[in-house]
Nucleic acid binder design. Structure first.
Lengths: 222, 222
DNA sequence: CTTACTAAGTGTTAAGTGTACACTATAGGC
DNA sequence: GCCTATAGTGTACACTTAACACTTAGTAAG
């Protein structure tokens, strides 16, 4: 026990709620806990902060170690610190939410976590700790942000069609959108450009392919 | 040094940016540091988390201890954790922002802080640690929230006139508002009721007095 | 008591934005 | 060449937002 303090110190973790879209459903990335407490239960990827490491770096590192996911859009969500939230010791969790585009879905389980897997958001397994609360909050933040920012682009692969983009918005908002109004609106943002290519996707007219003009950015709109 | 851990643990603090309106200006509550580091500099009220204390409770307790302010609207803002942000040891700060109505401006310095004082937001003194960043973020959050919530009511005393309320919105948004449009809009929210009283405030027609229907609540509007 | 002064209070109109809605175009498969 | 499926396009109406000026009710001074 080499680290001593005059007053008791909590431990700090980061936990990350990673969303993606797959098979027309919102998906969440979970890892199965290999150790007590809650051994065998599913949980958000995350882990303890190293003492000289920035919070954001910790979130990205843990995500990569446990699931292989890297280079995702990520932002701080909220800090959970109820005294009883972890049975081991006092642990404060700085939580994040992240978005994975459809072409970065491939994950691999890391050394810390036995397994990593995508779950449809509507049918999540039982979750460890207070992770269900974290996920709930992350979903609300994501839904709210689709209304006033270009955050949904972060769920898209590098190129996509307007129909594919509309489908993403429909899933996130949970309602059907008018095709003409959607196209007028999304193009009026001046955030998309045509690649010139077309996508043949069945026995029907092919769709123009678009890409985001600034793929890394999330702009506030309206 | 009675508290030992196998791995190093950061310390946790809460820091609170309290805003108010006074003399037609946005004001921020600061305390002068009585101890090193940054002794003598002004800083946000705040302090260390106790080991069995909730984060929100810690913020409220520190605020009361250092400034006497209590029963304010308060919400979590962001968690700052850059490894070098405090020269003593690794300290993670869970920050809050709070709003004080004009009739709760009276403060008193507590035991931990030598002095507590309101400063006009435009002329803040030099600040300790990364508190300038925290304040900047808090101001942005406050400005954004006036656009889509009833948060501005938290800056009002129990009763007020529509002109006073309009003045608050004008200060927060930094622009003049049309009187008729403002009144139409604010009354259409159905969040205000007349008390029946009138306020004589000079040599002119007295104003009707209003109060918030649910003073504690902040509702999302639009 | 009359007048001057000051902030409170009140409606209408034009411009702009959002919403509803149906048909044509272009490819593949048979 | 005919069928089928998704891509792609424009207009009319309703509603919301923004601009704008005068009357009212009190105080104070002469």
């Amino acid at each position: 026990m080499p680290y001593s303090y005059e007053y008791p110190h909590p431990a700090i973790t980061t936990d990350i709620a990673v969303f993606s879209l797959h098979q027309q459903q919102l998906q969440l990335l979970l890892v199965r806990r290999g150790q007590s407490p809650h051994k065998g239960k599913w949980a958000l990827p995350g882990g303890f902060l190293e003492i000289d490491e920035d919070l954001d770096s910790c979130a990205k590192r843990e995500l990569k170690e446990e699931t292989g996911a890297a280079d995702l859009y990520i932002e701080q969500l909220f800090t959970f610190g109820h005294p009883e939230r972890d049975p081991r010791e006092r642990i404060i969790s700085v939580t994040y939410f992240a978005l994975a585009p459809a072409d970065k879905l491939t994950i691999r389980a890391g050394s810390d976590a036995a397994e990593a897997e995508w779950f449809p958001f509507d049918t999540l397994p039982e979750l460890a700790f207070d992770h269900a609360d974290i996920i709930q909050l992350a979903k609300e933040r994501l839904a709210a942000k689709t209304l006033y920012s270009t955050i949904a682009f972060q769920l898209m692969p590098e190129t996509f069609t307007l129909s594919e983009l509309q489908s993403v918005y429909e899933i996130l908002r949970g309602e059907a959108l008018d095709k003409r109004n959607f196209r007028k609106w999304i193009l009026s943002l001046n955030q998309l450009e045509e690649t010139g290519g077309k996508r043949r996707n069945g026995n029907h007219r092919p769709a123009k392919i678009y890409r985001a003009i600034s793929p890394g950015r999330v702009d506030i709109i309206r």
